[in-house]
Amino acid sequence: MSDDHVYMTLAEGHEDDTRWAYGTGFEDPLHGVDTTVPEGIDAGELAALCVALADDALVSAQRLAEWITRAPELEEEVALANIGLDLLGQARLLYSRAGQVDGTGRDEDAYAYVRDAGDFHNVRLAELPNGDFAFAIVRLLVLSSWRLAHFEQLASHPDPVLAAIATKGVKELAYHRQYAAEWAVRLGDGTQESHRRMRRAQEQVAPYLGELFTACDVRDEVVTVLRQVTEAAGLPMPVYRPLPGSGRDGEHTEHLAPLLAELQGVARAHPEATW
């Protein structure tokens, strides 16, 4: 192979764009899965569930993307990007499923770029501004533990597509939780400063916990995990009073609209464009 082989061939072979655009080694998690909605499933409920879970993932991925070039170490740049990419991938599959199920035939971008804050159904914890690395870790620990428990249940959902998406997601979320748990222990145990920051982050996250458990019934499992990790980290379990309202019902903090303005700005400025 000559030195310039790669560059020379750049303009050739564009008929086959889609092959590489998702990245090498990308396995289609829906390969061979029947996408018709099985009888006896309420299509409206299924679509709403897919959208809510996709919104959680997209909004979380957006916050993780904001960390890029701001992480405390290069390994953390890579890890936070990896987690963000996994969640973005989950969001894309779930939106696509919602579009198949709700009869509108909308694609992933129609859900991500055209809806306003009041039509988003993510939990509010996902949309809170980034804060420091301790907050990122506590939030990730809570959200990944919760989503993992939820996805483990959904892996046996009667809709085969949602079940396949959840099965793929379980492997990813297990890593996210592991990463967050390891950092929680390091920071809880590390120095007085890191311990103080972790306590503060726990207090900031706690009021948003209640909302998670009205969305699905995994409270005991999640609380057990959080208790284990906080104990290993030498941190207390925070006592909290849940905030009223729920992102699942479209009730959000003031932070979601600006997040969406940034996410949607270019796409909305060029409604006729193709990207």
């Binding site: 997209l58 963000g84 991938g89 969001a91 991500a112 770029y113 940034e262 796409a267 060029h270 990207w275």
Partner: peptide, 13 residues
Amino acid sequence: TRAPSLRRKAILF
């Protein structure tokens, strides 16, 4: 954070 499609967002990320 501003990529105009989810596919472009994933590629750039």
